[in-house]
């Protein structure tokens, strides 16, 4: 009996192990591990913190959006349930005055139906956030050849995305002596890369991290938060990381809530089926 149990446990363990390998990151990473941040949206009951999203949006709008597009997010999304400017008075985010005002600040491309010429008009809530550059080439040309990635799903496109984003923005350091960093590039211990070729020191002690094309984007006081939160570099980095997670996974609140209901239902169903099973098999040896 014990043996049987043991072998069953072994099967389960083997599969759990196999599963965990699948999700595991490949090794041979040379960058420093991003410190763990406790975000409000983590865990099974996690939710976005609206005040934090508003602060994060301000950082994105005033700093990041100068170079980074966010082409999958529409103005209306900012007022969606769970979003930075959600207001229960306006269940339809297209009616939300804050969202309308944000959209109206931007000009978007249009076509003059009279002449067929390209024209500009103020954005409406249905429009998508306006990209800072016309196309990839323009973006590269303005950024020393590097392409600032679109930020719509950035927080999901990196392992431990929000932690990684916070660490990058927060983690610039002076390049250690012996490391050649090309002009217009910056050393960041959290950025993946292999620097053995530009390292003059001990080949067994290559510094971790890589060189990134983005200059340190934030410093203490870069933005002024409307809610009076002290605008430290770390605060800005944490808030923008949370905002980018919202942009990448706007249905997270809904997902966590529905998940709880589904699990409660399944536990109940399993209990009922267990008793049903026990009743049916009561008099049968097996």
């Amino acid at each position: 009996m014990t043996l049987k149990l043991l072998s069953k446990a072994a099967v389960l363990a083997a599969f759990a192990g196999l599963l965990s390998f699948g999700g595991a990151v490949m090794a041979a990473t040379t960058e420093a591990e991003a410190p763990k941040t406790q975000f409000s949206f983590e865990g099974p009951f996690g939710k976005f913190d609206q005040a934090q999203l508003q602060r994060g949006y301000k950082v994105y709008r005033e700093v990041c959006s100068a170079c980074h597009s966010m082409s999958l997010v529409a103005f209306r999304n900012l007022g969606d349930k769970g979003g930075p400017f959600y207001d229960p008075k306006y269940p339809n985010s297209n009616d939300n005055p804050v969202v309308k005002a944000i959209a109206a600040d931007y000009m978007v491309d249009d076509i003059d139906t009279e002449t067929g010429d390209p024209s500009k008009r103020p954005a409406v809530t249905a429009d998508y956030l306006v990209a800072p550059f016309k196309n990839e080439y323009a973006a590269r040309a303005s950024n020393g050849g590097a392409l600032p990635p679109d930020m719509s799903v950035l927080a999901k496109a990196r392992e431990r995305g929000p932690d990684y984003i916070r660490a990058i923005v927060n983690g610039y350091k002076a390049a250690p002596a012996g490391l050649t960093v090309a002009p217009g590039k910056y050393y960041n211990p959290y950025f993946p890369g292999d620097m053995s070729s530009s390292w003059k020191g001990d080949p067994n002690d290559v510094p971790e991290g890589g060189v990134i094309g983005m200059p340190p984007p934030l410093r203490d006081g870069s933005v002024t938060f409307d809610d009076g939160t002290k605008s430290t570099l770390d605060q800005q980095a944490t808030d923008v990381a949370a905002f980018l997670m919202w942009a990448a996974e706007p249905k997270l609140n809904e997902r966590h809530q529905l998940g709880a209901a589904v699990l409660i239902y399944l536990l109940l169903l399993s209990t009922l089926l267990w008793f049903s099973y026990k009743t049916v098999w009561k008099h049968e040896s097996h």
Binding site: G22, G23, A157, G259, A260
Partner: peptide, 14 residues
């Protein structure tokens, strides 16, 4: 359900 609702991207790749 645990995977779908709480770990939806854990088996995929960033």
């Amino acid at each position: 359900a645990v995977f779908v609702f709480y770990l939806p991207n854990s088996l995929g790749h960033a």
